[in-house]
């Protein structure tokens, strides 16, 4: 269980909701659950997003453990030059 923050881009999948409480013990499980509830969203979160947990960008997010109070942000990928 965690509090997931989605970007505006993701909201077209979630009927406009941008903060969603989701079941799951890892970020990967959250994505699976979101895909189950909102088909198509999971793909976007896996391939086209970075993950921040409680405000810190986590490079390899999917195996990261989450708890009920964990704030998970899915944000756009960042690169550099």
């Amino acid at each position: 269980m965690a509090v997931v923050h989605l970007q505006a881009d993701h909201r077209r999948f979630t009927n406009g909701q941008n903060v969603i409480t989701v079941e799951g013990n890892t970020v990967g499980a959250l994505i699976d659950e979101l895909e189950h509830r909102y088909p198509g969203l999971g793909h976007l979160l896996t391939d086209g997003a970075s993950v921040a947990i409680n405000g810190e960008l986590i490079p390899n997010g999917i195996f990261e453990r989450v708890e009920a109070s964990t704030e998970v942000h899915f944000i756009a990928p960042i690169a550099g030059g």
């Binding site: 505006a8 881009d9 976007l44």
Partner: peptide, 19 residues
């Protein structure tokens, strides 16, 4: 187009919104 469900060719590379 990235970040959309579109499957047809288009001149848009990506569409995003932040608010």
């Amino acid at each position: 187009t990235l970040f959309t469900k579109d499957t047809e060719p288009s001149n848009l590379a990506s569409i995003n919104q932040f608010d």
